[in-house]
Each structure stands twice: as C-alpha cells, then as structure tokens.
C-alpha cells in the first residue's frame, strides 16, 4: 500500500508539473480530481468536526434529556439551517439572517480587540524606546533604530492619508513613506522566493528520494 501510494503520488506530481510545458489533459485531469477530493475532504470535516459536535450533539442531547435550557441551543441550529434557503430561490433571502448574525458578531468583537492589539499596542511599541532613551538604557544604534522606526511609521501613514493632497511638505513625507514601503515589499519578495522554492525542493526531494530512491 505504501509503495502504491508513492507511485500514485509521483504520477500526480508529474501530471501537475506537465503544466510547465503547456496546458494538457494530464494536468487538467489532476487539477479537476484535486478540486473534487478537496471538496469531499472539506465536507467530511465540516460534518464530523463541525456540525456533529456543535449542532447535532447538542440537538440530540436537548431532545433526549428534554431540558428547557438545552432546547435553547435549537435556536442557533435553526438559524444555521437557514443557509439551506440558498437552494430555494423564493426563500433565498432568509440566508441574510445567519449572515447578519455572523457579521454582527465579527464586527462587534473586532472593534475593542483590534483597537487594543493593532492600534494601542503598536503605537505603544513605537514610542516605548523613547522612554528607554530618556532613561539612558539604549546605545547609539538602538537610538538610531528607534528614530528610524518612528520616522518610517509616520511617513508610511502619511502616504496612506488621502484626505490631504500630497504636495509640499506632505508630498515629501509621503515620498519617504514610499521608500520605506518599497524596502518592506522588497523584503517580502525576498522571503516569498524562499517560500516558493521550499515547496519545489520538497517535491524534488520526494521524487528523487521516496520515488526513484536516488538519495
């Protein structure tokens, strides 16, 4: 079974790589089969590790134990079932109910937590080193780094501030912001190359080592 698995995996690996030459039936075969398997896999997990523990089990428990509080859990289950209204065009508007609840929950909890984690804590992180400078705890390079960070953050924010026309001093500051952004994007590109090549190395290692046993 293990050997068969390796050969099957190698076959599909080569089917996908055949796309490097050009689009062809082998690639399309693998691509479509992959989509089907992924969806099937998703269905199994959604049911076994989502709907059963979160909806079916509480439902069954509420029914068998006949507890009033347990029956309250039927309300979200019923709301969730409204997603199926999508298949009946006449009642498809009912799908807005569960979507509205999910979006409301998401928006409500985002406001305080995002404000704290991504605004206050980030501003705090930017300004903390200046307290340390004042206390004489930082060396020359750290002080330079702290100033550079503050300048970078202000300039980048200015670049994204579209309520004022980017001319004169604002234009100059936003141009410095672009410099920081470009270096940031450059570093992201460099790391992306590493990420993509890692995937290739793993597949080549599989073909040479597990399949062809050359290593």
């Amino acid at each position: 079974m293990e050997v068969l698995g390796i050969w099957v995996a190698a076959f599909f690996t080569l089917c996908i790589y055949s796309f490097l030459y050009r689009d062809n039936p082998f690639y399309r075969f693998a691509e479509h089969l992959f989509v089907g398997l992924s969806v099937g896999y998703g269905i199994v997990f959604s049911i076994h590790q989502g709907l059963i523990p979160f909806a079916w089990d509480p439902f069954w428990e509420a029914i068998t134990k006949r507890e009033f509080m347990g029956l309250l859990k039927l309300i979200p289950i019923f709301i969730g079932l409204l997603f199926f209204a999508r298949v009946v065009p006449k009642y498809s508007w009912l799908i807005r109910y569960p979507i509205a609840i999910l979006i409301g929950i998401g928006a409500g909890r985002a406001i305080p937590n995002v404000m704290d984690a991504r605004i206050f804590r980030q501003v705090y992180g930017t300004l903390t080193p200046f307290g340390q400078i004042h206390a004489g705890a930082l060396g020359f390079f750290e002080i330079f780094g702290a100033i550079l960070m503050l300048v970078g953050v202000i300039c980048t924010l200015t670049y994204f501030f579209f309520s004022i026309e980017h001319r004169g001093a604002v234009g100059g500051i936003s141009k410095v912001g672009i410099i920081f952004l470009m270096v940031g994007f450059g570093s992201a590109f460099g790391n992306t190359v590493m990420g993509r090549v890692s995937l290739l190395i793993q597949r080549v290692d599989f073909l040479l080592s597990d399949w062809l046993r050359l290593i």
Binding site: R121, Y124, G125, M149, A188, N191, T192, R196
Partner: peptide
C-alpha cells in the same frame, strides 16, 4: 510562518505581542 508572511509579522515582535 511561511516565507510569504514573514515580513508582515515583524511589528508584533518589537511590540512583544
């Protein structure tokens, strides 16, 4: 994280998050 995401998470290291 994957290489693609590395750069964007650096601010959270400095802020000790």
């Amino acid at each position: 994280v994957t290489g693609v995401m590395v750069s964007e998470l650096y601010p959270y290291i400095q802020s000790r998050q």
